[in-house]
């Protein structure tokens, strides 16, 4: 299939969704679904007034901070677990237990521990994504090719070079898709934490729009969240995946 045709099919899915939205508005009225053009007009208004920019910055800061802490913690635990079996056996059930905790439970705990403005958003994001990234990193370390380790040892490659040139690229092949998924997840968890806990950022604005029964405004904020999740994947993680691609 040609590139133009593929792009056309990709756009057609979004167009169908837009049509369904319009049909939903026609069927159920403006108190359930606003007209798509009203939502987009509200979006333009939010961008022009600067409200969108300020909220995006606040949410992005918390989501990215939480994601980065989760990544650092996940890797810091995965490396010893990848090389020391007793540590791996001890860490796995803890990770499974943490994955089983719903993010909203962490938000409640963070509210109790830190209060509404005490970093509950970033904490919730980091504690939610850390076990996911730990699992992916551990899988990357476990499934690396031992023949390449032996090759590097035969050439007496220093430890740091083995890490950067041999281990890390194999790890990234597993970690990059998980990190991309976790980043998309971070936005959602962060907005949820903002709605429930801090009242800051996009989540805070979303809660405010809902309280005012401002449906076009609510949908405008939802569009902003989706656009941010897609943009973060495209600009942060796509280059990473490309770097570890096996075909030149």
């Amino acid at each position: 299939m040609s590139a133009a045709r593929r792009a056309l099919w990709s756009v057609s899915g979004l167009f169908a969704l837009l049509l369904a939205w319009g049909a939903g508005h026609a069927a159920y009225g403006p108190f359930v679904l606003p007209r798509p053009d009203e939502a987009f007009a509200a979006l333009v208004g939010l961008v022009r007034s600067g409200a969108a920019g300020a909220a995006i910055l606040a949410t992005a800061g918390q989501a990215l901070l939480g994601w980065a802490i989760g990544l650092a913690v996940g890797l810091a635990v995965a490396f010893p677990a990848g090389f020391v079996e007793p540590f791996r056996l001890a860490a796995r059930p803890v990770s499974t237990l943490l994955i089983g905790m719903p993010p909203v439970a962490w938000i409640v705990l963070a509210l109790i521990w830190f209060g509404p403005g005490g970093g509950a958003d970033a904490f919730t994001v980091s504690v939610t994504v850390a076990p996911i990234l730990f699992g992916a990193a551990l899988q990357g370390l476990a499934s690396r090719d031992p023949a390449l380790d032996e090759m590097a040892a035969q050439f007496r490659a220093p430890r740091l070079m083995r890490l950067t040139d041999v281990i890390a690229p194999q790890l990234l092949a597993h970690l990059a898709p998980a990190a991309a998924a976790a980043l998309g997840f971070s936005w959602k968890v962060c907005v949820m934490a903002e709605v429930i806990a801090s009242g800051a950022g996009i989540g805070g604005q979303l809660a405010l729009a809902r309280a005012h029964l401002d449906l076009p405004g609510t949908f405008a904020w939802l569009l902003i969240i989706v656009a941010l999740a897609l943009a973060s994947d495209a600009f942060l993680l796509w280059p990473l995946r490309r770097r570890t691609a096996v075909v030149a």
Partner: peptide, 28 residues
Amino acid sequence: RAAVVTQTPRLLKWMDALDNAAFGMKAA
């Protein structure tokens, strides 16, 4: 200085041919 060549080439698939060939020298 001993060098080993095995039946499977054991190349690093994320590096191009030039960097693979230079791997041992980088280690040195």
